[in-house]
Structures are given as structure tokens and as C-alpha cells.
Write a protein that binds this DNA or RNA. Structure first.
Lengths: 335, 335
DNA sequence: CTGAAAGCGCTTACAG
DNA sequence: CTGAAAGCGCTTACAG
């Protein structure tokens, strides 16, 4: 920031032209190894720091990727973000982060910043209520991007997420094996695709087991411990309890258990959570959950994005990772 | 990325010079409002996007701030990061993120990236084992920075964190009120300042209560659920149990409870956690914890950093936010 | 294998 | 109140 040592300074000291110094810096062949070593040594000795921004002006590449998330503090998204960041770093990109708080206007502002900073690509967990038309704008800007975790169906964007239909099915099938005849799907925001898909998977498994559609009930709650708590209380206040509950997230499952404990009825329900966050295994009872492996999902998104930055005209890829049922005890299994 | 519409294009269309267009863009007075409106309208109409990188080359300011953390997926750091990001955004800075995985070498690389990107300032949660000498380098680079959550005592850096001595004291005093005569401090990494400070606070409170130094024991475990689980098992395997346990984090407390439940001894100990993460209130028993309010801590760090960027020669500020004891039931209180 | 020169898109004194 | 010109620190054909 102060010194502003430039390549010209290094070149002068090393007795070469700026062009040669630049060639050495970028490792682009065509320089004798003797010269290279001398220049490199000079750089180190002078404490030269590459000015990436200046290079950007010339090359039109920033080596920065935008990552726009809905809620950093959410442990699951934290895992996704960790995997994403690691993979981007490996490919030589820095991560420009923005948290939208799941607000569409805030997201608009974040995207504007990303454009002004000329990010080379964008990983986006779209905020609830994002119009699919937003993606057309990306195409217009020719901004390579990949959707993560939440899908917007414009048929034109790459996406990495979990196979939610399968996740719902796995949870339901396990509950059915336990003999459940009625299942409640607890929580999640109205209208989001992941919830619809999971419920579809649950419904399919139940239909195959010969259960009527009425055997599957559902309710909408904020995706958080508080949402689960409120949902759990509502469930307990209802006229009849379902045999099993599939929660939209582990945090909802934890809130549900809080309600159950408060009512002195912790073992009255078979419960399955979703995401398999770190605390799930520690919970009492240990939470049976659908693992979606946020870290590797983020890493996959990172790899895909890097690929798209390399070939902007490449194929649209929609990747749905198979989730896994992790059986512990909240479903009624004993280990 | 493609179009590359420049200010010159806008100026030509609006019939003014590039200089005037630039003045309009930056809102730096000296332009008739008629001209301003015309230029602004032209920008909108043409879909012009400011190229911040180009401006940076001239102004030497990037409007980007580096945030280097040890572990994004940690829910507590996620909260800190959220508060930090919100505050930086408010001041017009974008956040360049790097996760070090608490590794010193990775941290070195992250800092190099931050320098190459010419960030205007830096918020750092230092990795375990970071030499205090690192901070001298920052001064050398004249890079405004603030340490967050973990202190390095170089007497020359601004810092925002929780008052750990007080936190330890609050936890101990509450346990003492419950009649505890022996206390174990569970987990945390050997040698880190926060652990030392908390233990000091615990020790002081116990001494004031007339207890001998031997009444306070401690053990070192990784700060995670797995660390807590291992620590809990070790505790149970020991010859005698303490009356109360103060955990270095809520995750450790959760791991401890897993060990207790597995041993069928969930209520044999009075337990206090640390951080008061969202799941603490849902836990069974609801976790009494020391709240450090990660979000507002992050926000405070953001404000301080913005201030330092504005006045690099300003005072060094060390801010220790007072933590609060949140009483729930794991300590033995009944609500 | 190396050097001279133009140019990336802005901002900022300096004239007028 | 507005315009012409220099310059921020790089990279990249193009000569030699």
C-alpha cells in the first residue's frame, strides 16, 4: 500500500526490461533460466508483491470468484462454503463473499458489487423468491455461474445440490420399515423446490407401500431451531400425532425435540433430521438424519465453476449428489 | 466481461468528456444537475457497470477488505463472520474471504493473496501458533488490521474479543453458588490465550471462595463435539468426578453430554458451555452457557477496522466485550 | 532470448 | 462548470 514497488523497479535492479520481468513472474517460458533466477532473487530481496489488480486491467481476468450465500451463520452453509473456498483456492481463485440474509434486494446489491469487481465467476445460493429470470441476466453479462444447494429451474444454469427426491424417499422408507403408517413433513419454507422434491420422494415411497395420500401431512416453519420448536408445539397441540416425522433440517429436529422434552414426551415420535450436521451425532437421542455432505457438495460446486470459467460455452451440468441415510437412534433404532 | 462498456462510451453518448462522466459517477460536486441527470440516465440506459478495478489502479483503494478465519464451518465463527460482513458492506467494502483451517502455512498463503489483491484492510482470526511477529509485518506493509476473537499480544494491534477472564469468572461463580467445591475446565487447545484467561477467571473466583488451587483441574481437548466426547469419557474413567464442569465451547459440552448419556449418567454433573450457539437452548438439558454474542462482536470488529482504514495512524484499540451468563438447566437450575 | 511501445479503464490536477 | 492530458502497474504482440 505504501511502498508500491513495481515490476519496473525489480527489472531495473535486475538489469532486464519490464517485459522480461513480467515473463519471469508469470512463468511463461521464453526466458533463460539464468535470467529467471536472477529476477526471482531480486524480487524476493526487494520484497516485491505482485499487483493483481493492475494485471487485471490488462488481462480482463481478476482471479476472483464471487460467492453469494443466504446465511453464513447457518452451519450447513458454512460447510458448503468451506468446501467451495478450498476448491477455488486450489485453482488459484480468491473468494469474494456476500451474505444476503436470504433477501432478494440485498442479493441484487451483492450481485452489483460482484459485477463492479469483475469477478471471473459466481457461485450462488439463491435467496428465497429469486426469479428465474435473474439467470438470464447472468447469461447477458456472460458471467459463468453455478447454482448451489437451491435450484432455479431456468433449464440453462449449472447446478450442484443434493438429490432431494431421493433424500425424502430414503427417510420415508426407513420410517415405513419401522411400521409407521402416518408421516408428517415438518418445516421448510413454502414453495421452495427442495421441500417440494423431498415431499415428493416421501409421497412416492408411501404410495408404493400402499398408504393413502392422506397419510402424509406437512407444515411450514422457518428453517431454524425456533421454527422446529414452534412446529413441535403445534404438532403436540394437534388432535393426533403422526407415527413418524421427517424434518426439513437438523435444526428443526432439535427444536422439535425441545418441544417434546418440554412436554415430557421425548420418545413418543420417530424422528429423522436432514443435513447431518456435526451436532446430530451428539444429540440425545442421537439423530438419524439424511446426510447431504455440505463440504463435498461445496467442493463439487467449486470444481464445476472453475471448469465453466475455463470453458464458458461448455455444457450445462446439473449434478444431484445422492444423500445417505445415517441411522442413529431418533428413528427408534437401537444401536 | 464481454461488452466492456466504458465511461468513454457513456460520455460520448451523453455528449460530455470522460472527466465529467467520472465526476458524475463519483458524485463529486462541480457538475450541473442537468448534466448529471443526463449522464446518469445515459449510464442506466446503456447498462454501464463501474469498473472498480480500473479505478483502483488510479486511486490505490480497492474497497475490498480481507477476512481471514480459522474455520468457516464453525457456527460461532459463522456468526462473527456474518456481523463482520454486514458492517463492512454498510461502509462500502466488499469482503475477500479466506479459510485457513487453523493452519499457519495456509494462513501465510492467504495473507499473500490479500496483499496481491491490495485489500484496504484486514480482519484476522489468527491461526493457532501464529507468531506475534506476524503483526510487525502488517505494520511494515502499513496494512490496517484488527484481530478478532483471538489475541496476539504484540501491544500494537487493535483487537476485538470477549473478556475471557470475566467469562471464566461468571461461570465459576455460578457453579460456586450451586455449592460446587471442585471444578474441571474441559477442552480447548493448549496455550491459547482465551483458555488461559478463562481458567484464570475461574481460578480467581474459586480462590475468593476459599477453595485451594487443587480444586480446579483441567484437560486439553480439540474444540469440537468429538473433542468433548473424548474428554467426557476420560472424565468418567477418572477416579473421581468434579462437582462442576466448565467447557471451552458449547460443542465440547455437547460431546461431554454424549459421553454422559452413553454412560447413563446425564445428570451426574453440573455443566456450563461457552459461546451460547443457537443449539444450546434446544439441548437436553438446555445448556447454561456463557454468551459471547459472535454477531455483535463481528460487527464491532468491522466498525473498528473501517475506522482504522480511515485513520491508519489512529489509536490502537483493545475492546473486550463483557460476556453474559445465560442460565438454563445444565448447571442444575430448574426453570 | 530480450526490449520498446501501446493500451487496459479509470481519476485528477490543471487550464479555460 | 467542463475538457485535454497524464498516469496508475501491469501484459502482450511485435521487432530484433
Amino acid at each position: 500500500m505504501t511502498e508500491q514497488l513495481t515490476l519496473a523497479d525489480v527489472a531495473a535492479r535486475a538489469g532486464v526490461s519490464r517485459a522480461t520481468a513480467s515473463l519471469v513472474l508469470r512463468g511463461t517460458g521464453r526466458v533463460s533460466s539464468k535470467t529467471r533466477d536472477r529476477v526471482l532473487a531480486t524480487m524476493r530481496e526487494m520484497g516485491y508483491v505482485y499487483n493483481r489488480g493492475a494485471a487485471t486491467l490488462r488481462t480482463q481476468r481478476t482471479s476472483v470468484v464471487g460467492v453469494v450465500v443466504t446465511h453464513i451463520a447457518n452451519p450447513y452453509f458454512g460447510e458448503v462454503l468451506g468446501g467451495l473456498d478450498a476448491e477455488l483456492k486450489r485453482a488459484g481463485f480468491a473468494t469474494l463473499l456476500a451474505d444476503t440474509g436470504d433477501d432478494v434486494d440485498e442479493q441484487r446489491r451483492a450481485l452489483q458489487t460482484m459485477r463492479e469487481q469483475r469477478v471471473d465467476g459466481l457461485a450462488l445460493i439463491p435467496a428465497t423468491g429469486t426469479p428465474a429470470a435473474l439467470l438470464d441476466e447472468f447469461a447477458e453479462w456472460s458471467l459463468p455461474h453455478v447454482l448451489v444447494s437451491r435450484y432455479l429451474d431456468d433449464g440453462n444454469s449449472s447446478y450442484v445440490g443434493a438429490d432431494d427426491v431421493l433424500g425424502g424417499r430414503l427417510a420415508a422408507e426407513h420410517l415405513l420399515e419401522h411400521g409407521c403408517r402416518t408421516i408428517h413433513y415438518l418445516g421448510g419454507i413454502e414453495g421452495i423446490l427442495s421441500r417440494r422434491d423431498r415431499i415428493r420422494g416421501v409421497g412416492a415411497a408411501m404410495a408404493e407401500a400402499g398408504l393413502p395420500a392422506s397419510a402424509l401431512t406437512r407444515s411450514v416453519w422457518e428453517v431454524s431451531g425456533q421454527g422446529g420448536l414452534a412446529g413441535g408445539r403445534a404438532l403436540l397441540d394437534g388432535e393426533s400425532l403422526p407415527d413418524g416425522v421427517i424434518c426439513h433440517s437438523d435444526s428443526i429436529a432439535m427444536g422439535l425435540y425441545r418441544a417434546l422434552y418440554d412436554a415430557g414426551a421425548a420418545d413418543v415420535l420417530r424422528v429423522i433430521g436432514y443435513d447431518d450436521v456435526a451436532a446430530a451425532a451428539l444429540w440425545e437421542p442421537p439423530l438419524t438424519s439424511i446426510a447431504t455432505h455440505g463440504g463435498s457438495l461445496g467442493a463439487a460446486a467449486g470444481r464445476l465453476l472453475v471448469e465453466r470459467i475455463g470453458q464458458p460455452r461448455g455444457q450445462v451440468v446439473v449434478q444431484r449428489a445422492a444423500p445417505e441415510l445415517v441411522v442413529r437412534r431418533s428413528c427408534g433404532c437401537h444401536s
